[in-house]
Simulated scan of single mutants.
Amino acid sequence: METKDKPAGPEVPLPSKEESEVPPPSKEEPEATPPPPPRPDYLFLVDVALRFLVFAASLTSVLVMVTSKQTVYRGPFPVRAKFNHSPAFIYFVVALSVAGLYALLTTLACISVIWKPICPPKLLLHFVFLDVLILGLVASATGTAGGVAYIGYKGNEHMMWQKVCSVLDKYCKHIVGALATSLFASVLLVLLVWLSTFTLHKKIRQ
């Protein structure tokens, strides 16, 4: 009885011992890349710069006003002029001192939150309210002191108020310098109100 041999097919290579011991691929998830650091808000940087300028302008105005004094002689009698001889100038010094302190505190507050990814709109709303209040304070003090300085420079013939700046020239130059610096601070505060309002509007729309 004949036996039929099966046709030999292609030989399949058996896996070697080293290949069989290869560990299966790990199923670990790829490491998540850390999120990028938050980018600073450049509007807040401008806000910090403006507030620091308000502080510098207020401090300069107070120092110039406080150092405004002069002594002249009318005959044998000395006539002394100082800022504290006028209630308007005293109010000016107090108002600009408050504005300078406020600008310094808000500058530090802005620096403390400048790197945070989200600035609370409530803080911006407080800035808007306080900026408007300080703007009104500085503007009123500048106008009050400016009215007294104008009378000292021009006088008033109808009220028989004489000019004094022709005699107290050094004193009046200090007053004019303090008023000019406070006017510059008022303009900066107007810009701050606009910037704070725009930033708050931008935060609300997001």
Score class of each variant (00 low, 15 high):
residue 166 S to N: 15
residue 166 S to W: 02
residue 111 I to F: 14
residue 34 P to T: 03
residue 40 P to G: 08
residue 56 A to M: 12
residue 198 F to E: 05
residue 125 L to Y: 13
residue 48 V to C: 09
residue 159 M to L: 14
residue 47 D to T: 15
residue 1 M to P: 04
residue 184 F to P: 00
residue 2 E to I: 11
residue 128 V to M: 06
residue 134 I to E: 07
residue 106 T to W: 07
residue 24 P to Y: 01
residue 125 L to M: 11
residue 82 K to N: 08
residue 142 T to R: 14
residue 131 D to Q: 10
residue 62 V to K: 15
residue 116 K to Q: 06
residue 90 I to T: 09
residue 35 P to L: 08
residue 62 V to P: 08
residue 183 L to T: 09
residue 118 I to Q: 04
residue 96 L to F: 13
residue 190 V to Y: 09
residue 156 N to Q: 09
residue 30 P to L: 04
residue 86 S to F: 10
residue 72 V to E: 01
residue 176 V to W: 05
residue 206 Q to M: 14
residue 197 T to C: 14
residue 159 M to W: 10
residue 103 A to R: 06
residue 20 S to N: 05
residue 116 K to F: 06
residue 38 P to C: 06
residue 95 A to Y: 06
residue 47 D to Q: 15
residue 94 V to L: 13
residue 124 L to Y: 14
residue 93 V to P: 00
residue 178 A to L: 00
residue 60 T to H: 12
residue 132 V to K: 15
residue 206 Q to R: 15
residue 31 E to I: 10
residue 33 T to S: 13
residue 132 V to L: 15
residue 148 V to W: 07
residue 23 P to Y: 03
residue 91 Y to E: 11
residue 87 P to K: 15
residue 99 A to H: 01
residue 67 T to F: 07
residue 51 R to Q: 07
residue 72 V to A: 04
residue 117 P to D: 03
residue 141 A to Y: 06
residue 185 A to L: 07
residue 129 F to Q: 06
residue 3 T to I: 12
residue 66 V to A: 09
residue 112 S to C: 08
residue 114 I to F: 07
residue 60 T to N: 13
residue 161 W to S: 11
residue 133 L to N: 06
